[in-house]
Nucleic acid binder design. Structure first.
Lengths: 224, 224
DNA sequence: ACACTAATTTAGTCTAACCTAAATTATAAA
DNA sequence: TTTATAATTTAGGTTAGACTAAATTAGTGT
């Protein structure tokens, strides 16, 4: 019951959570790609996780993996660590938002509950990290967000960026240069159905065109 | 050359550094005791460390281990992390000095050079941690201290506590209750050669008697 | 010089987490 | 329905880092 999960196991759970959030099981290959590991290794690990007492995942051959309640709790604990750390690194230690993912990935496995509490309260118990990702509460409740992909915004609507789902540092720096960061207001000026390009104005600035690869990863809310 | 040392290896190096600081090699058994590991495991690991390219320790059978320059650098890097972290946890996150050792032991292996720099400069590049232990500089130079064991202080001399060499939380809390913390002034009132007990006054307070087990671990400097 | 004890090393195992290659199963097209 | 392709699993192997038990070496007192 009081379990000390290894770092690899915590990583598996974190990614199973992300991939199965929509309800569909996380597949072996998707997990392998995310974890940077061979598919066969994933099969082996999933079988082990399903055999633990208590089991952390449910698993049926060729169907993929889903988290059990215990597995979900462990995953949310790691995700809370990760997102609190990212927030702390940016707001208290002057990291930029493209640097924090890697650092948080290493720290998330080793900080104590005390450390978690201290940084959470130093930050005023934030509900979202610098990328806009929701931070599970201390009770491991995930905040529910209403945001939708920027890709779906149509002229002449405007909206506020709530979330940027990306971890690649060069990509994040690029978005930062374009002003596409949480809090920014974007107005849709034109949409091209062929290539799914969106022409937008960001924060009263110059008009610019952004491709589908970008606008699908940015989540906005129409408000104000 | 660009080495990613594992956490166990970093721990070995750290403890070899501590045990061989005086110049005498670190013995298998002492290392085993410190690392909480069987002596045979230490032998195996030391042989591996001596066989790395470049070697991190020098080793001759039954003689114990000494750090090579590369090994010493790696050890000092970890020790710098550890002591900066302890300092940061105490001064920026409200940890008490008995809580920080364990936390720093886990964090020291995973923080980046960037993280190290940021906390060092947030703290004003401290040279000593909350226990008074010297913090190696960014260039890995260890500050040299002049302090001597409180055990050697004789009436009517007085001195200032510079360093407390201990990690056990209950013990540290006890010292804290006695006021025996870095910065405190102690005056020797009497010394009993039989049991090595020392009667002292701490910070103008009540006289109290402290045993050799304590006064040997507290380092002071006579000044002022 | 000898013998006893304590320290150390060797030899052989174990487990977690990975790998590759081969075998199997599912999926989708003809 | 059959078959090709892609996904998955099985089987077998590797490595780091630990363990125990047995063998060896060093150090000390006689």
């Amino acid at each position: 019951m009081k379990e000390n999960l290894t770092q690899p196991i915590q990583d598996y759970l974190k990614h199973i959570y992300a991939l199965s959030e929509a309800g569909t099981p996380a597949t072996t290959t998707d997990l392998a790609a995310r974890l940077g590991v061979a598919p066969a290794s994933v099969t082996g690990m999933i079988q082990r996780l399903a055999g633990l007492q208590p089991p952390l995942v449910t698993y049926r051959k060729h169907q993929g993996a889903l988290l059990t309640p215990a597995g979900k709790r462990a995953a949310l604990e790691v995700i809370r660590h990760h997102r609190l750390l990212e927030t702390y690194l940016v707001t208290m230690l002057g990291f930029s938002w493209d640097e924090v993912h890697e650092e948080a990935c290493r720290l998330e496995h080793v900080i104590s509950e005390t450390f978690e509490e201290r940084i959470a309260s130093a930050l005023g118990n934030p509900t979202h990290d610098p990328h806009g990702d929701p931070i599970p509460s201390a009770a491991l409740e995930m905040p529910t967000d209403e945001s939708t992909p920027l890709l779906g915004l149509r002229p002449p609507h405007s909206a506020v960026i709530m979330r940027v789902q990306a971890t690649d540092p060069p990509f994040l720096r690029h978005l930062n240069n374009l002003g596409l960061i949480p809090g920014a207001r974007v107005q849709a000026l034109a949409f091209s159905p062929f290539d799914q390009n969106l022409q937008v104005r960001v924060n009263e600035g110059e008009a610019q065109i952004i491709g589908a690869a970008i606008s699908a990863k940015i989540y906005v809310e129409e408000k104000g």
